[in-house]
């Protein structure tokens, strides 16, 4: 007569114990429990009974160890059965009403939301922060020097037309002030105060008398970056914008420059980034015009720099699939609640 090995015997018992744990723990009513009992503990053909027969087939030397293991498993299964039986009996004894309808709503916790434009601004600022750019702040009510002259926009320039700006009359001030038409004003203020090296991002509200439509609003947000250090070239500009675009869109994004014109940069370019196989407009950029560097007291032969500007509404509209930028200013909670910050900033 051949012997069953001790290993096989132990393995079979262990498997039986695992199965018993699962079946007995899952049993939610008396019928399921009885089925499990017959299968495991049945006096005639229960699994445990069958396993006991295997004990007799062990080699004599293995019998004490096999017997010990068998008893341990039998005891464990008995305990599991008793526990399950107690649990089911208790549940059956209680009133049915005590069982909860788990599909009823939980106690609501209302979630607030950060405005999608704020989310966009934070994200841009965070990415620029990784590139060493510091967020700076400046007034929205500006004087003509910072909004125009220091930015190489002279008095007769069309950009200064009263119809193209929001001029203010201030009793205590001779020269008319205006709501800034660009955040470059902050760059001038920072450069007037500080010396290179300089890496800053100015962001905030700007104002231009456009008629509100799906892509225009007379108040909007700009992010403008400025870097001034010795030896800065357009290659640095392109590389920084490429880093930005790659971080913002994900993956390795290429950018391209198209020649353009802005009074305060020279050369000036429009920047496109490649997105889903298409070039999409990202914003304007260029090397800081030597006249601007001179206006703030820098030596254009000793330092150079670049500047770039992005329209926050445009980026946010594309990112969130918002067709009409006026929606950003309607403040309908149903709209605002759709924009969950995804932890990117």
């Amino acid at each position: 007569m051949s012997h069953v090995s001790l290993e096989a015997f132990v393995a079979e018992l262990d498997e039986l114990r695992t199965e018993a744990e699962r079946n007995l723990a899952d049993a939610t009513d008396a019928a399921a429990l009885e089925t499990a009992r017959v299968s495991l503990l049945g006096a005639k053909s229960g699994r445990l009974k069958l396993a006991q027969r295997g004990l007799g087939q062990l080699a004599k030397a293995d019998k004490p160890a096999g017997g010990k293991h068998f008893n341990a498993v039998k005891q464990a299964v008995d305990e599991l059965f008793s526990a399950a039986q107690a649990r089911i009996t208790a549940a059956a004894a209680g009133p049915i009403a005590a069982a909860i309808d788990v599909t009823l709503p939980g106690e609501p916790i209302r979630l607030g939301r950060v405005h999608p434009l704020s989310q966009t601004i934070r994200r841009v600022a965070a990415i620029m922060g990784h590139l060493g750019f510091e967020v700076v702040d400046g007034p929205e009510v500006e004087d003509q020097w910072h909004n125009f002259e220091a930015l190489a926009i002279p008095a007769e320039h069309p950009a200064r037309d009263p119809l193209d700006n929001f001029y203010l009359s201030v009793a205590s001030h001779a020269e008319p002030l205006l709501l800034r038409s660009q955040t470059s004003t902050v760059q001038i203020r920072v450069m007037e105060r500080r010396s290179p090296p300089l890496r800053i991002v100015s962001l905030g509200r700007v104002y231009r008398p456009d008629t509100a439509d799906a892509t225009h609003y007379p108040m909007f947000h700009q992010v403008e970056g400025l870097l001034v250090e010795p030896g800065i070239t357009m290659a640095h500009l392109k590389s920084v914008l490429r880093s930005f675009a790659s971080s913002f869109l994900g993956g390795d994004v290429h950018v391209r420059f198209r020649p353009s014109f802005f009074p305060f940069t020279e050369p000036s370019v429009e920047v496109d980034m490649e997105w889903n196989g298409r070039w999409i407009e990202m914003g304007g950029a260029g090397m800081v015009d030597p006249a601007v560097l001179e206006a703030v007291g820098y030596d254009p032969d000793a330092v150079s720099g670049f500047a770039f500007g992005l329209g926050v509404e445009r980026i946010a509209a594309r990112r969130f699939g918002v067709a009409d930028i006026r929606d950003f200013y309607r403040n309908d909670v149903r709209f605002l609640e759709q924009f969950s910050d995804r932890g990117q900033a």
Binding site: R110, V114, H115, S118, L179, Y207, M219, Y329, L336
Partner: peptide, 10 residues
């Protein structure tokens, strides 16, 4: 539970 709004400065 508040939502951030952006309203006009003027």
């Amino acid at each position: 539970g508040f939502c951030e709004a952006m309203t006009r400065s003027v």
